[in-house]
Amino acid sequence: MAQILQDSILVSNYIKGDECSLGVLIERHKQRIYSFIYSKVLDRDITEDIFQDTFIKVIKTLKKGNYNEEGKFLPWVMRISHNLVIDHFRKNNRMPKYDNNGDFNIFSVLSDTDLNAEKKIIKNQVERDVRRLVDELPEDQKEVLLMRMYQDLSFKEISEKTGVSINTALGRMRYALINLRKVIDKHNIVLTN
């Protein structure tokens, strides 16, 4: 209890401007927080980073006066570090890394970009379906969409070729896409490779 009381006093002293209080708080809880992070990520450098980010967040929150959990300093800091650990794993899932140590496999980095037979067939089918959908569009929208997507013309060039303003061409393109999406949704068409 005395410990909790002291934490809350240190926190309020720190908020009032006593920088030394932060040092005491870090000193008091560093081992528990650091071990907690390490137990999750099992890497010294990452633990160090997350530990640092945790306290940067603590410092910012306290200095902004957004802290309102007096007496529960450690659980609060633990929660911040826990959230940062989750963020770390999420980030790594989005950007998987390849480690080059040990039995490094070059094919984990280089992949065969050519489509296999099955994927080629699927790709052709998808392209054929898209063509058929495009053919269903009103003539003015189809014209703009074909020029933009298949001939790669700019909207300025399209407006010159079709004799309408750029805004009209943009509008037709927009409606073409909306209509395509509508038809795709309506008929539950799956256009994925």
């Binding site: 920088e19 932060l22 040092g23 870090i26 650091y34 160090e48 530990f51 640092q52 306290f55 410092i59």
Partner: peptide, 17 residues
């Protein structure tokens, strides 16, 4: 030995100041 580096703590204290 599960402790952060001294540099990390120094950085945090300086950052806070």
């Amino acid at each position: 030995n599960m402790l952060p580096k001294k540099e990390t703590i120094d950085f945090l204290l300086n950052y806070s100041k």
